[in-house]
Design a binder for these strands. Structure first.
Lengths: 139, 139
DNA sequence: GTATGTGCAAACTTTTTGCACTTCG
DNA sequence: CGAAGTGCAAAAAGTTTGCACATAC
């Protein structure tokens, strides 16, 4: 992933381009396993040993509210982040913390079709996410 | 919900029946809005003013690992619990912390059918949960 | 130059832990 | 009675906050 592209994403959102923001955005992309704030912190510390933990949290918040990254829903009280913005789903391992992205355009269509005919009273659906819980083959 | 039924559920799992466990199990059922540990604590404190916060966490853990209740996946670092065990989905409000249960047998069938034809390489799906994110009509 | 962002440390919130005491079966 | 559960208080883990200093634009 090109650094210039990352910088442009910040600019497009009207955000100031700081080395910390670029580094954190890059880290979330690179650490493609839905990293925690801690993992991101460790990762960017290698390049910028003086970045503060608090800054990581603040920047992650900023990136989330500007829709440059997303939070991943988990059963844990530790937040995890995802750099992929397009509509996709997640595979959750029952036996570990592993979470993988899952893309299935056909599935999206099937679900979309279902909800085209079936409205939910009192609720307007804006986004649909699937959580597929199971086991990865360890081979 | 009958207390005797709740007690039996504990017995069936080989768990000792304590007043705290029964009260917490009942609280999760009664507080049907996917309560936090804190809400459960407050609720049962009315009846048992000497129950400890730590006990609530321990009991919730026990109930979850014995599949008497479930954790609800959220984007927050506060855990929430669900007493409904049958296969269902959740409606998440974008603007608040409101989470509602959503039952749709037809949808389950559509999804089941989709995955009957389409295997995910390297992953065995055991359970599918949908998160429907959007807005509740405030009327 | 000025508004905005960062580093640091302290505080806060949620959850976990250890251990003496109590209770269930 | 003995194994398992609870209460309490302290600690850990994760996150937020306030403020002086630094930096982007």
């Amino acid at each position: 992933m090109n650094i210039t592209i990352l910088k442009n994403r910040l600019v497009e959102k009207g955000l100031r381009v700081t080395p910390q923001r670029v580094a954190i955005l890059e880290a979330v992309e690179r650490l493609h396993n839905h990293p925690t704030a801690e993992k991101i912190f460790e990762y960017i510390r290698k390049k910028f040993p003086n970045v503060a933990e608090g800054t990581v949290y603040k920047v992650l918040d900023t990136l989330v509210s500007n829709q440059l990254i997303r939070k991943v829903n988990t059963e844990k009280d530790i937040m995890r982040y995802d750099a992929i913005l397009e509509n996709h789903h997640h595979l959750y391992c029952r036996e570990s913390d592993r979470i993988e992205d899952y893309f299935d355009e056909e599935l999206n269509k099937v679900i979309e079709k279902h909800f085209k005919n079936k409205m939910i009273p009192g609720f307007k659906v804006e986004e649909i996410r699937l959580q597929l819980i199971g086991k990865f083959n360890t081979r």
